[in-house]
Amino acid sequence: MPRRTATMLASTLVLIALVCAGLLIRVPYSEMSPGPTVNTLGKVDGEPVLQVTGHRTYKTSGHLNMTTVRVTGADYNMNLVEALYGWLGHDSLVVPHDTLYPDGKTEQQSTQENAEEFSQSQESAKVAALTELGIPVSSRVVVSTVIKDSPAQGKLHAGDVIKSVDGTAVERPEDVAKLVTRHKPGQDVTFTVIPAKTAAAAEKAGKEPEGTEKITLTTRKAPKENRAIVGIQAGTDHTFPFEIDIKLADVGGPSAGLMFSLGIIDKLTPGQLTGGKFVAGTGTIDDKGKVGPIGGISMKLVGARNAGARYFLTPDDNCKSAASDTPDGLTLIRVKTIDDAKKSLEKISSGNTAGLPSCSTG
């Protein structure tokens, strides 16, 4: 066999061996890639994403697209070839597995957590939108969860409205823990609550719940900490003056909050917030309208541009990263609050985009 042929054959065999090894070697990485985008002003499977009942709505146009990211599952074992391909590619991102699934979190646990965050983001989006429009929303502190085998089990229930602890009025969820931890483990603490069933009936009737009960619990020492607990997590529940339904399946996490709130505002106000333009974006939202950062910003930018977006509403804390790798034809707009986003959309609608707040790498 000629030396040249032997060398080529040997090189080919080595290459095949390396590829086979790369396919067999598993690495502790996961992949993120652009997910679908959804127009919050549009429909999915024939159903409007945002449905308002009991209040006048107005015609909308254009796009206010929420963006998503696809990720490999917690049990997926990426091989070396896939990792290298992802690192070299532009439309995907390879990250350490623990970034997506910290502390050994299973895919089921991650899915459940994302579903809870998505539900909470919808509530905050409604509150932020109505507050921005000056429409009153009543809120109250409630029992969010009760821990199994805790002092509260069987005595307090999810949905119970917490009016006071030891006679001190409760205004925020964090007030509950502060009042409980004034006690030493083993001491009694008294909750004044409106039972969940009573509160639910009042909400259905459009009234404020009334009729309190006093529940006394004996505190317990927290695991690994010398502080008193009763075994509940407090949260906030809201009563809206009319019904707002957000219908979107197979989406999780809190990052659609900003776009949901803007979609609600557009539907509840005359005129068209986007002026028919294609705007996408991302960002968490809290009850007061503050926009928070999200993960996977680079993949969301790619997904938005692929869908046809020209403008992208970008959380302030994500701006630097987003500006370092912005797809051609996409204009980033820095937002810190829902009011920032609304004002920027008004400029886009009018065509006066010179003063839009931008993102930079600095």
Rank of each mutant, 00 (worst) to 15 (best):
T5E: 08
L9P: 09
A10E: 03
A10N: 10
L13G: 08
V14W: 10
A17H: 06
V19D: 04
A21C: 07
G22T: 06
I25A: 11
R26L: 08
P28M: 12
Y29I: 07
S30M: 11
P34K: 06
V38L: 06
K43M: 10
V44H: 07
E47Q: 11
P48H: 03
L50D: 00
L50R: 03
K59C: 01
K59L: 08
T60H: 06
S61H: 04
M66L: 15
T67R: 01
T72I: 09
G73N: 14
Y76E: 12
Y76W: 09
N77A: 15
V81W: 04
A83M: 15
L84K: 12
L84P: 06
L88I: 14
H90F: 11
D98H: 12
D98T: 14
T99Y: 09
Y101P: 07
D103T: 11
D103K: 09
K105G: 03
Q108F: 08
S110A: 15
T111M: 14
F118D: 05
A125W: 01
K126S: 01
A129Y: 02
T131C: 02
V137A: 01
S139K: 05
T145P: 01
T145E: 13
D149Q: 13
L156C: 14
H157D: 07
G159H: 06
G159S: 10
D160H: 02
I162G: 00
I162M: 06
I162Q: 00
K163P: 00
S164G: 02
S164L: 04
V165H: 02
D166R: 10
V170H: 02
P173H: 05
V176C: 11
K178I: 05
K178M: 11
K178G: 10
R182W: 01
R182I: 09
H183D: 11
P185K: 07
G186Y: 14
D188Y: 10
T190Q: 12
P195N: 05
A196L: 03
A196G: 08
A199T: 09
A201H: 12
A205C: 09
E208F: 09
P209S: 05
T212Q: 07
I215G: 07
L217V: 03
A222M: 15
P223M: 11
N226M: 11
T236E: 00
T239I: 15
L248Y: 04
V251A: 05
V251F: 05
G252C: 04
G253A: 10
A256F: 02
G257D: 04
L258Q: 05
M259Y: 07
S261G: 11
G263M: 02
I265N: 06
D266V: 07
T269A: 08
G281T: 14
T282A: 07
D287V: 06
M299I: 12
M299E: 13
K300Y: 13
G303K: 04
N306C: 00
N306L: 10
A307F: 09
R310S: 15
Y311I: 05
F312T: 03
T314R: 02
C319N: 01
T326F: 11
G329W: 09
G329T: 13
R334P: 03
A341F: 01
K342F: 10
L345G: 01
T353S: 09
C359S: 14
C359W: 08
